[in-house]
Design a protein around this nucleic acid. Structure first.
Length: 419
RNA sequence: GGAGGGGUGACAGAGUGGUCGAAUGUGCCGGACUCGAAAUCCGGUGUAGCCGCAAGGUUACCGCGAGUUCGAAUCUCGCCCCCUCCGCCA
């Protein structure tokens, strides 16, 4: 959520920002709703003030009946006004929530993911005469079972089996350990959260377009990422300025409906309904967020490097940023199974600086010399247990179809190859 | 799941229809005293919105929501959370 005061004072900046982000938003409609809202609020408060003053006079008055009558008439008027106020207030709020965050001036301008800017590459793609994809490798090695997953839970579910299940655990512990050593507090979070927490983090449960599973007859949804629960963790809190930045490494399962996402683009583990993920989440002072954004990216890269997986870093363009991000870097790893088996880059991590956009909705502040300020929040993928294994299996396959475990991971796995 | 108790400011804890944004204590900030500190004394100390150049004024918030009333922290209803005991259970 953007500060309404900022929108009032800088409508053109906000409009241009919406346009460059490729979001169609009625800023004027919001401003009009805000004007009506403010005017009505003023009237209501005047009436309340009068009501309060009459109520105060009654006990000592010798003409109680007249005052009670006046009180009643104000009460009735207020009831009407408050009903109207509720409507305009909801409209204003809905419009306000639909405005995307402001954008970093250096973010590349563009319409969609074709305009994202590659800023560097690391590692060398190992060539094979006939590379297998992770589904073929997984079935052949007996570590990944989509067929049984579909039988038990439907398409896009799977079982990790044998060394595959151990590999999954090893990757989780590897990432948690790495982040712990780098100052992150390990967190194991709920896999469900209340709708208000989802909304606070910038997600929209229960809409027609939603990617989120929600639980019938409750206000709970399955989370799509631990960003939601870690963001909600400090909702409505004041943080101690000297404690900032606060850095969390959360492990949770992630659930996504992925409606309509079938076909080659979402082959195998690339898009699934459930996966585990280690997520970084940081709360900090405004002046710290840009440096921390780069730090998060650095951790993501070092994890990829430790796992010896070639990747490239992409600076996400304005049109592809989504709502909350002020700036976003993705890392794409090489995946042999993509592009009809010819190989291509596939997203494995994403790091966003959301500035105060989420903090405003979640009401997370700290006390500074300037008064009370909203914190900045950032999030980044530590290690996603769906996509990282794709890259791991496909890049570390051997000529005989076995998988060589990278050295950094062997202590966590307890084995050095899968065959 | 059953029975009972409870949710008030940073914390503890009063307050059962009006003068309560809320006693008192602790903590915290400023000041006095002191060579300095402790103790003591004095003053201050919630959040958000609106009006205002400012001083200041005003509205809302006592778990959340709805209701009764001229007036609600206080009464009624629903919900959430916490504690104790019983049952059940990974």
């Amino acid at each position: 959520m953007i500060d309404i005061k900022f929108i009032r004072e800088n409508p053109d900046i906000v409009k241009n920002n919406c346009q460059s982000r490729n979001v169609k938003i009625e800023v004027e409609e919001l401003l009009e709703a805000d004007r009506v809202y403010t005017a009505l609020l003023r009237e209501i408060e005047q009436n309340r003030a009068e009501r309060n003053s009459i109520a105060e006079q009654i006990p000592a008055s010798n003409d109680k009946a007249t005052l009670v009558e006046r009180g009643k008439s104000i009460k009735n008027k207020l009831a009407e006004q408050e009903e109207e106020f509720k409507k305009i207030s909801e409209k204003r709020q809905a419009l306000l929530l639909s405005i995307p965050n402001l954008t970093h001036p250096d973010a590349p301008v563009g319409r969609d993911d074709n305009d994202n800017l590659e800023i560097r590459q690391w590692g060398e793609v190992r060539q094979f005469p006939k590379p297998l994809d992770h589904v073929q490798l997984g079935e052949r090695l007996g570590i990944l079972d989509f067929e049984r997953g579909a039988k038990v839970a439907g398409a896009k579910f799977y079982f990790w089996k044998g060394k595959g299940a151990l590999l999954e655990q090893a990757l989780i512990r590897f990432a948690m350990d790495y982040l712990y050593k780098n100052g992150f507090t390990p967190m194991s979070t709920p896999d469900l959260a209340k709708d208000e927490i989802l909304i606070g983090t910038g997600y929209q449960p229960r809409g027609p377009e939603t990617q989120i599973y929600s639980i019938d007859n409750s206000d709970l949804s399955l989370i799509g990422t631990a960003e939601i629960t870690l963001g909600g963790y400090h909702k409505d809190e004041f943080l101690n300025m000297d404690d900032l930045p606060v850095k969390y490494a959360g492990i949770s399962h992630c659930y996504r409906t992925e409606a309509g996402a079938y076909g080659r683009e979402s082959y195998g583990l690339y898009r699934v309904h459930q996966f585990a993920k280690v997520e970084m989440f940081v709360l900090c002072r405004p002046e710290q967020s840009e440096a921390l954004h780069l730090e998060i990216l650095k951790h993501e890269e070092q994890i990829l490097q430790a796992l010896e997986i070639p990747y490239r870093v992409v600076d996400i363009c304005t049109g592809d940023l989504g709502g909350p991000a002020y700036r976003k870097y993705d890392i794409e790893a090489w995946m042999w199974g993509r592009n009809e088996g010819r190989g291509d880059w596939g997203e494995v991590t994403s790091a966003s600086n959301c500035t105060d956009f989420q903090a405003r909705r979640l009401n997370i502040k700290f006390k500074s010399d300037q008064g009370n300020e909203f914190v900045h929040t950032l999030n980044g993928t530590g290690l996603a247990l769906s996509r990282m294994p794709i890259a791991l299996l496909e890049n570390h396959q051997q000529a005989d179809g076995s998988i060589k475990i990278p050295a950094a991971l062997i202590p966590y796995c307890g084995f050095d190859k899968i065959d």
